[in-house]
Design a protein around this nucleic acid. Sequence first.
DNA 1: TTGTAGGCGTTATCAG
DNA 2: CTGATAACGCCTACAA
Lengths: 341, 341
Amino acid sequence: MPRTKGTVSIRDVAAAAGVSVATVSRVLSAASADVPVRKETRDKVERAIEELGYRPNDLARALLQHRTAAIGLVVPDISNPYYPPLVRGVEDAASSRGYRIVLCNTDRDPAKISGYLDTLIKTRVDGIVVAGGGWADVPDRTAVLGNYRTGLVAVGRHVTAHPSVRIDNVAASREAAGHLIGLGHRRIAFLGGPASSTTVQDRAQGYRDALKVAGLAESGAVVRYGDFTEESGYAATREILDVSPPPTALLCANDRIALGAYAAAADAGRRVPVDVSIVGFDDTPIARYVRPTLTTVSIPTYEMGGAAVRMLLAQLGGNTASEIETMPTRLVVRDSAAPPA
Amino acid sequence: MPRTKGTVSIRDVAAAAGVSVATVSRVLSAASADVPVRKETRDKVERAIEELGYRPNDLARALLQHRTAAIGLVVPDISNPYYPPLVRGVEDAASSRGYRIVLCNTDRDPAKISGYLDTLIKTRVDGIVVAGGGWADVPDRTAVLGNYRTGLVAVGRHVTAHPSVRIDNVAASREAAGHLIGLGHRRIAFLGGPASSTTVQDRAQGYRDALKVAGLAESGAVVRYGDFTEESGYAATREILDVSPPPTALLCANDRIALGAYAAAADAGRRVPVDVSIVGFDDTPIARYVRPTLTTVSIPTYEMGGAAVRMLLAQLGGNTASEIETMPTRLVVRDSAAPPA
DNA sequence: TTGTAGGCGTTATCAG
DNA sequence: CTGATAACGCCTACAA
């Protein structure tokens, strides 16, 4: 019965119900707005919709309304355990407001970032949430974004002209290092991720600040860079435990690195926290399940995702308040850090 | 200069370049197909595109071509470490073929599944990849999918009329249990996830098969259900280690449960694998980094994602071959399982 | 090689 | 309360 090649449209419904397409459109929008439509007519139409299994074409609607109800979500790599909660935060906040999300994994590759950005603009997403780095080498598409009224909010990044939700990495790291110092540690190493990451830079900074305050600046500062993986933490730890005297504590830029450090310590015959204390960052789910349980800095990733969506929607609504939102972190003290032997 | 309210369209480009919209359209599609266009004209147009920051509207294009280049990806929960590699597999395969993905987290909630399904149809995604369960209680939308030529392939599910990519959970579990039996274990417990999950049912089945083959069926079968979390594994293990005699080995339905079991064993003063052997499922990244390293069944999740996309695209192309693709699993023997003391 | 015009599936405006 | 009809931004014959 549907006339267009295999896909049922509003015209088929209109024909089946014996009304005009305009009327069908009305009963469709009657749900939200209050357009007047006779009950009898509505029933006819709804029956037709049901029988034909009709689903309105949101593309056509979007074309007309200049609004797709889609949000682009750009992350470095969903396989990094840091991101799933953020993604959930974004998705839950988005879907509860009628938006869907299109996910883009960039691997921090400027070419991929660039490509995804173009795709998102071409599909006319209403806005974009970007997390993580790799943007330094991406040609600035801001003007184009503006051309198409695409909103953008960054999460966890520092260098951007757009609104952003972030945490105070310097302060968080200072607190974590301070905790170790308070425990009596004097030789503390910092195991970072990529040196190019502003997050890593900030955490290294907080670490140095804490050492300086404690008067340990030169004697005890040891900073290693690598990436955000277990391997990286493992390798760095194996090396670092070999120097003499070895550090008595390790401040890791994330939990994955800390996990690698656990493994390296075990393989080197050192016990945590007796021989070496370890502190992480992120409070990933495993932190509670490794033994000893991991002392780490908790970051409200899920909430940050939600906040990003709220800011984005505000931005789309023309509301330009709260350009930067800083969310609180918290040092979760567990069993992996103790006074040095 | 753009005339339409704030967003630059093909007409603006045409005007700026002093040509017709058709010509602009041609230089746009000239990239892929080979439409004839004079170099001089092309340059003019491309200059205009550049200057105006023009990005073609894929909505309009999709409307015309009945093809959105979008794939819906439905998973229970991206925060479950099992899914990120699958999602990456899908995204990488999709994006390399010019498709983008819209991500849907269902929490196995029939209402959410249903809602997302409608959204995906309304936005006219070309196809849908569904992973994980919760579909038993969802009213069948298959007819509607057909109305809109939406492809669908399931990954890791058994009850479905659609093509699917899966693994042989029964055989994999049989092998894992067999490994434990071969080590000399006689009292082996199975720690499952949700009893309603076909995956869990199959793994329990494989476990029972192995026991039976070894003549242990009645004496040694202990099956616990719960969910796929560390908590669940922790709780089950604490209980199970209290019975006397306790099992000497634990076969866990996934690595998260196994991780919970590690923690419970430690808290109960039992050593792995001396006092209790543990085997997991999934070969999550942490498996290599816990100590002792975790013996577990490796599942090619990333590849399964890629396979799903290939099958989906074949389906869209009218190719209906390979209705079911079964991918190989592999028991990765590490240090968490050893002969009983 | 380039321009004109019709239509993709909706919604919105205006008459009736 | 309902029905024509003109957009939305683009592609694709068909003409020129």
